[in-house]
């Protein structure tokens, strides 16, 4: 596993070096657009998230991942219960996403 990780890291470093300069430098020439959430017209949960967006994008990013994970697994779990209550057997099906 150690050797594997070592090889992986070496390869990734090489890829970074190989990424053509225009791709990595491209973003610097043109100034990216900046959005500000208009918290003057918001309240409640919207206001909470909009404030986080304006002040700390990193925190907002972590929150997004947590919300997605919680919501995704929560809904998946709930749907499992509902579908088994209805009585339709889904377990034999293959689902490819």
């Amino acid at each position: 596993m150690k050797a594997f990780l070592y090889r992986l890291l070496t390869s990734i470093t090489m890829v970074y070096l190989l990424i053509p300069a225009p791709v990595s430098a491209g973003g610097k020439k043109a100034k990216p657009l900046v959005h500000v959430a208009d918290t003057r017209v918001l309240s409640g949960t919207y206001l909470y998230f909009a404030n986080m967006y304006n002040e700390n994008l990193l925190l907002f990013g972590i929150w997004t991942v947590v919300v997605l994970t919680a919501l995704g697994s929560g809904i998946g779990f709930l749907m499992d219960i509902i579908m088994s209550k209805i009585g339709l057997d889904l377990r034999s099906r293959e689902l490819r996403e």
Binding site: T64, L68, T69, L71, G72, S73, G76, D80, L95, E97
Partner: peptide, 15 residues
């Protein structure tokens, strides 16, 4: 892309 992450999470949990 965020919606896909959530959706694949649902599929993973379910299957």
């Amino acid at each position: 892309i965020a919606h896909i992450a959530g959706k694949s999470m649902i599929a993973t949990i379910r299957h």
